[in-house]
Amino acid sequence: MRQSLFPHPKSLLLVLAAALLPPLLGVIPGIPVGYVLYLVCLALIYAIVALGLNLLIGYAGQFSLGHAGFLAIGAYASAVLTQRFGWPFLLALPMAGLLTAAVGFLLGLPALRLSGPYLALVTLGFGLSIPQLVLWRGELTGGAGGLRDLPPASVLGLELRSESAYYYLVFLVIVALTLFARNVVQSHTGRAFIAIRDSEIAAQAMGVNLTRYKTTAFALSAFYAGVAGSLYAHLIRFISPESFTVILSVEFLTMIVVGGLGSVSGSIVGALFLTALPEVFARLPVLKDFKNLFIVVFGAVLILTILFFPRGLAGAWSTRTRPIPPPAEPAARPQEAV
């Protein structure tokens, strides 16, 4: 039943179409192919973060306002490993993911005892602290000036300098990570995540070890962000603390809310949509003079999505998402039970 690699012919078609994107763009006249591919790469990298964030929020029901911090850790890890220590990119990429996962695991530890507003705040503080720590360890991280001229990604001696080559790299990574995420959410581990989200009481009664699965969710989510960070660093080849603000964390949150909480495909669609949106708005005649318009747009999109499409874009085309149901009983604040 759920066994084949691509269960729907539709998703197989989508993957094929995406694989043909660079040559297809080339035949359309007047399109700045390099820039468009660069943007698509960036959107797909953000989509990887969104996938991980959705595993954490949409499935395991935890919260994070600090994912830009994980992205930063992955980016700096990869940059320092390749530039300072001469690691090959192909080794630095998974290492960035694993290092970030370890940090995610550590952040998951306080999360065990915290929920709701407390957890939101701790993750926010984490996201704020990472750029500060980067500035503090300037001799390693380049401080406020950032790290420049990072080595280009290379695979088995082949340097991926062109946008279309890099696009294929990002594309392969995201396909692999999407399949992994989809497998996880349909399995033992994913059901434990959802059980924790739906009812920690029920989850425990069924034998779900909250400690293990909450830290797993944080570590897994951070792994995705770490891999994305590595890809980000070698796409832009320049990183500085300013690239990883809290606003970016909020953007990731917006992506999964708009795409659909608890939807793997929604994470990707949300990331593509929200990366494209400011580009489109910046080209509209009246609106392009409106400085920082994207802030208002993100805010409005967040609000409107929650109010009118609580299941996100994914909810509109698919019945396979898992909406977070309202609580069984209208939120009575728990009292001590007798």
Binding site: I57, V250, L253, V296, G299, L302, P326
Partner: peptide, 27 residues
């Protein structure tokens, strides 16, 4: 309206509100 859903919905709407207010003030 937001509070009819999960707690997360309400938190997200307030974040959206913050973004809109900052953007509008800037405008």
């Amino acid at each position: 309206r937001a509070q009819q859903g999960s707690i997360l919905n309400s938190i997200i709407v307030t974040i959206g509100l913050a973004l809109v207010l900052v953007g509008m003030a800037g405008f």
